[in-house]
Design a protein around this nucleic acid. Structure first.
Lengths: 246, 246
DNA sequence: GATTAGCAGTTGTCTGACAACCTACATTGT
DNA sequence: ACAATGTAGGTTGTCAGACAACTGCTAATC
C-alpha cells in the first residue's frame, strides 16, 4: 500500500559544497563579483564560510566546470565572462516565479518544433509505428477523463514527445528537451501543475496532438513544425491564463 | 609585436579530476555502466586511477552536479537515468566529427528562430536602434571583402544575433545561444572554419541578414522566425556542401 | 519471533602537508 | 642605468590520514 503522506518531506541539509557554490554564484549574479574579478583565495573562503578547504575546492570546481570561473594555478580564480559559460542549466530559483516558467516553455516550444520538423524528415517506419502506438495510448487515457487517468495521460504525452524528439536523430535536441522536462518534473509536482495538466483534457488539445503526429507520418516538416508550435504555444497560453497563475 | 608561432602550443596536462570524470563519463556513455549501477567506491576508484580520494571526489561531484550520478551517504554512488540530467553541455568530442557540427547548427537554428520571433514582438525602440547600427557595421565590414575584414565581419555578425536574442527578453534563449557560440568559437578557430566564414561574403547572405532585421523592425514575429531559419539553414547547408567537409 | 545493538562499508568533512606555479621584488653582472 | 637572474611569498593542485554521519546487514537479546 502506498504510504499516505502523513508527514511532509523533511528538508535534508544540502551539501556544503553546493551551498558554497550557490553563494559564490549568487554573488556573481547580483554583480557583487564582476567578470574579471578575482575570487578570494581558497584559504580565505574556507575561513569566511567556516568550512574546510576541500569543500571550497569542490564548490569552485563546480563553477569551473560550467565556465563561470576560471582558475590559474599560482594566481587565483577569476570570474569568467558570461559568454564563456560552457553549460546550460536551469536554476531552481526560476521556479519560484511562475513568470519564469512561461519563458522556459517558450524555449521548449522552439526546440520541440525544430525537433518535430527533423523527425518528419528523418523518421524511420518503425519509429513511426511506436509514435502512433503512444498516441493511441494517449487517446485511450484521455477518454477516461481527468479524474481517473491524469498521471497516465501526462506520462503518455511526455513519452510521445520524447519519441518524436528521438526520431530527429539529433542528440542535442534530445538532451535539451530532456533537461527541461526533468526540471519541470522535479520542481513542479505541485497541485498547481496538476490542475494545469487536468485542464489539457480538451478536444482541442487532442486534435493538436493528432496534427503533429499526422504531419510526421506524412513526412511534412513544415507542417510538423507549425503544428508543434501551435500545440505548445496553446499549452503555454492556457497556463498563463489560469486564475491561480501568480 | 605579436609573437610568431615559432613553437606549437604545448599540451598542458589537464587536471586530474577532469580526466577521472571523463573516464567515468565515457564508461557510462559506452554502456559499461548502466543507469542504476553502482559506481566503485571512492577508495576503489582512487586506487584504480592511482590518485588521491579528493581527486575522485571532485570528479564525482562534477557528475553529480550534472545529474549524471546520484550518491547517497553510507551507500554509494549510482548512475542516474539519462532523463534526470540537469544540465545541457556540449562535449568537446563532438567537434571531432564535423558531422556533429551540423547537428549543433540545427539546434542553434531552432533556438535563434524562436528568439527572433520573440524579439520582433517585444523589442524596444532603443534595442532596435542598436541592432540596426550593428547591421550597418556588418554591411561596412562586408564591403571590405573577405581578405581585409574577416574577423571584423564575423564579430559583427555574432554581436548582431546576440543583440537580437537579448531583445527577446528571455534569458534562456540568451544562455543557450551564448553557450553554443562559445563552444563553436573555442573549438573551431581552425583554418577550415575561417574558410567557411569567408564564403559567407555573398550578396545572398547579406540580403538574409537584412530580412531578419527588417522583420524585427516591423514587429512581424512570423516573418522574423522564417527569415532567421532561412539564414541559418543556408549557412549550415553551405557549410555541409563544402569540399573540405569531412 | 520481534526488537535492538553492534559492525563493516561508504560518503561527507576536516586537517595538515607538500608540489607546482605565478608574481613581484631584490640581487647581480655588465 | 639596465637587463637578466635568483629568491620569497602567495595561490592552486594533489596527497595522505583521520574522523563524523549514515546505511544495510547480522547477531545478540528479550
Amino acid at each position: 500500500m502506498p504510504k499516505p503522506t502523513l508527514f511532509g518531506a523533511i528538508e535534508r541539509p544540502r551539501s556544503l559544497p553546493d551551498e558554497v557554490a550557490q553563494s559564490v554564484m549568487s554573488a556573481i549574479a547580483t554583480g557583487a563579483l564582476k567578470p574579471g574579478d578575482k575570487l578570494p583565495s581558497e584559504a580565505e573562503l574556507s575561513a569566511n564560510f567556516n568550512v574546510a578547504r576541500t569543500v571550497v575546492r569542490e564548490a569552485i570546481s563546480l563553477l569551473k566546470f560550467d565556465g563561470v570561473v576560471d582558475s590559474r594555478r599560482g594566481v587565483g580564480a577569476f570570474v569568467a565572462n558570461r559568454e564563456e559559460r560552457t553549460s546550460f542549466r536551469i536554476s531552481p530559483a526560476c521556479f519560484e516565479k511562475r513568470r519564469e516558467i512561461i519563458k522556459l516553455l517558450q524555449l521548449r516550444t522552439s526546440v520541440q518544433s525544430g525537433a518535430a520538423a527533423l523527425a518528419a524528415e528523418l523518421r524511420s517506419d518503425t519509429q513511426m509505428e511506436v509514435i502512433e502506438a503512444v498516441l493511441q495510448e494517449l487517446l485511450v487515457a484521455n477518454a477516461k477523463g481527468p479524474e481517473d487517468a491524469l498521471e497516465e495521460r501526462v506520462e503518455a504525452e511526455l513519452r510521445l514527445y520524447r519519441l518524436i524528439t528521438a526520431a530527429s536523430e539529433n542528440e542535442y535536441f534530445c538532451d535539451v528537451v530532456n533537461m527541461i522536462e526533468a526540471n519541470i518534473q522535479n520542481y513542479l509536482r505541485s497541485a498547481f501543475m496538476k490542475n494545469a495538466a487536468a485542464s489539457e483534457f480538451e478536444p482541442g488539445a487532442i486534435m493538436e496532438h493528432k496534427a503533429v503526429v499526422a504531419a510526421i507520418k506524412n513526412k511534412a516538416p513544415e507542417a510538423a513544425r507549425a503544428a508543434t508550435r501551435t500545440r505548445f504555444t496553446n499549452a503555454s497560453n492556457s497556463l498563463a491564463a489560469r486564475q491561480d497563475f501568480a
